[in-house]
Design a binder for these strands. Structure first.
Length: 591
DNA sequence: ATAGGGTTAG
């Protein structure tokens, strides 16, 4: 064999291998190609190795590929920037393997292969997923040293990376502010950073700045803006965003439609969410899950179950998240038997091993149904350790069912495991209040003070004329607070006439009955409703958003108010919706 | 070959 034919053969083998990889769409074909590469002696062909690695990314086989490409027998001289970039990219796009991306970046540096401007977006994306600020900062340091910081793509990923790292948002903003030119990606990364952190007001106000700047937002920008609306419960802003999307002809990707569905569902208009869902041509599992979860939050459990069944018939495979939605639908609607049935089905029919979240749903379901003993047995038999969330579910159930001693002992144990979580102390202090052990309650509050902890104050938001107003208990900061308190007095008088009795036993303060009534009357929720009654024409529905669970007195008072003032009142609470109408609530007092 | 997004039990 002469030299020329050897070269053409090698070339031919390389070409055919690249072509095979190009069209490879299954793992079995991929492993075949792997043996083909070895047989033809192509394992030292950089072009083939790079293609092999990049193909593996789409087949979730990057670990398989990289153990071959980077095996100890491989010649390290083969490794070039291209090969490392491909490997890092493949790892960076896998949620569970992002640390590997950083590992290969370090290996790259160790091997003396220089990163280029394409390397850093991948590495920074991995850093974003890992979320460790110091790691991100050190990579940023290399970016500066290697002078890639003028590259627009690198800057965009820096914003995204800092926006995804704990404590990094100010660094993100700094990079963002110092960028000479921002495109829609830069704005999206910054707005998305705020939205993920729950800095929703900042996210929306930055979006307004983006409009002024003249950069055209795209579907991805709008997803973040909508998720900020969802967080705030800002239906009016959300509706405005929807019309903006129509007007500006923003690409209505599946993800954007999903975000719209989620926004309408969580801002109180579940029927609009359903309508959008029905009009979607291409749906994915997230679309189904969002609308099932939305129905669950609105207490429309049977519809949620029906939709889940429809999803199965449509041959969309349910995942872990969709089962959380389904089980919580059963829980919020008291569908205990259905819930049990689906919980078993999860393993049997869908091969999904229930996780702690699913066990949590079951515990919650049993507790809501008053099956406290069963809930405890269930936890005993669980194959996984109950987590603090499950414990708090049990403790809350103990409180509502008068099992105060039991609640106290679990809470004490929980504090032992989780000494820095303020809600545990709040729970314990509430238990002592219910036991009328005021001295113990005071002591807990002292401990909290000493540790620098504060109870999250209850607050209620309401949106009027595109403004968001926030009230806290006893709030006097509003410039119409005088009128609001007069309105509260009037409401109180009318309610008492209609038969409302303040549930003062829920006031966990050591004060006399009259003061307790007063304290109840100043709850943020009642302030917001009074404000809405003052500011909106008769008959307008009132929508409010609470950061905590609605208290039982506010719940019963709101029923009276809905009847007396003929208003539909929609309350989003920490975990579900209450639709008040004609003196009744959609939750059927079952929350 | 280059970046950004959605659903998660109390």
């Amino acid at each position: 064999m002469n030299v020329v034919s050897l070269i053409t053969n090698k070339r031919a083998a390389e070409q055919s291998c690249l072509a095979l990889l190009q069209s490879c769409n299954s793992l079995s074909k991929f492993t075949q190609i792997h043996s083909y590469i070895i047989k033809l002696g192509l394992h030292s062909n950089p072009l083939v190795l790079t293609k092999f690695t990049s193909t593996s990314a789409d087949l979730n086989a990057i670990s398989y590929a990289s153990s071959f490409v980077f095996s100890p027998e491989s010649d390290t001289h083969l490794y070039d920037t291209f090969l490392f970039n491909t490997t890092i990219r493949a790892y960076a796009q896998r949620n569970d393997l992002k640390t590997k991306a950083v590992k290969f970046y370090n290996l790259m540096l160790e091997c003396g292969v220089s990163p280029n401007k394409f390397t850093y977006p991948f590495v920074l994306k991995a850093c974003a997923g890992i979320g460790e600020l110091n790691l991100g900062k050190s990579v940023h340091g290399s970016v500066i040293k290697l002078r890639f910081c003028d590259d627009a793509h690198v800057q965009n990923t820096l914003v995204h990376m800092y926006g995804s790292c704990k404590g990094g948002i100010l660094f993100a903003r700094k990079v963002f502010d110092e960028m000479p030119k921002c495109d829609s990606v830069s704005w999206s990364a910054m707005i998305g950073g705020y939205a993920r952190l729950g800095l929703s007001t900042e996210a929306i106000s930055l979006f307004r700045k983006m409009q002024i700047s003249g950069v055209c937002p795209d579907d991805i920008t709008m997803v973040s803006v909508l998720s900020a609306c969802t967080d705030l419960g800002a239906l009016e802003v959300g509706k405005w965003v929807e019309s903006f999307i129509e007007k500006e002809r923003v690409n209505k990707s599946v993800e954007l439609c999903n975000a719209l569905i989620d926004m309408f569902a969580k801002c109180g208009d579940i029927d609009k969410a359903l309508k959008l869902f029905r009009n979607m041509i291409e749906k994915n599992i997230v679309s189904w899950t969002s609308v099932i979860d939305g129905l669950a939050m609105h207490g429309r459990g049977l519809e949620a179950v029906a939709l889940f069944e429809e999803m199965i018939r449509a041959r969309v495979a349910p995942d872990y998240v969709s089962f959380i939605g389904l089980l919580s639908a059963c829980s919020h609607s008291g569908l205990v038997d259905k819930g049990r049935e689906y919980f078993d089905l999860m393993k049997k029919d869908f091969n999904l091993v229930p996780k702690i979240e699913h066990y949590g749903c079951m515990v919650d379901m049993l507790c809501r149904a008053g099956l406290l003993k069963e809930a405890f047995d269930f936890v005993q038999k669980m194959p996984i350790e109950p987590n603090p969330i499950v414990c708090r579910t049990l403790i809350n159930a103990c409180c509502t069912h008068g099992e105060l001693k039991l609640g106290e002992s679990i809470t004490k144990r929980l504090i032992g495991n989780e000494p820095m979580h303020e809600s545990n102390y709040v729970l314990l202090s509430n238990i002592y209040a219910k036991m009328l052990r005021w001295e113990k309650k005071t002591k807990i509050r002292e401990v909290m003070d000493k540790m620098g902890m504060r109870k999250v104050p209850g607050s209620t938001m309401i949106e009027l004329d595109n403004e968001i107003y926030e009230f806290v208990a006893g709030d006097q900061s509003h410039n119409q607070h005088k009128e609001i308190y007069e309105m509260l007095d009037e409401m109180g008088r009318k309610m008492k006439k209609a038969g409302y009795v303040p549930t003062t036993r829920e006031v966990l303060l050591d004060i006399d009955e009259e003061d307790k009534e007063d304290a109840l009357n100043r709850h943020s929720e009642k302030l917001a409703i009074a404000f809405a009654l003052l500011k909106t024409p008769p008959g307008t529905p009132i929508r409010i958003v609470k950061n905590l669970r609605v208290c039982s007195d506010c719940h019963s008072a709101t029923k009276f108010i809905s009847k007396i003032y003929s208003r539909e009142i929609v309350v989003r609470d920490r975990n579900r919706f209450h639709h008040f109408k004609d003196g009744f609530c959609s939750c059927g007092d079952f929350w």
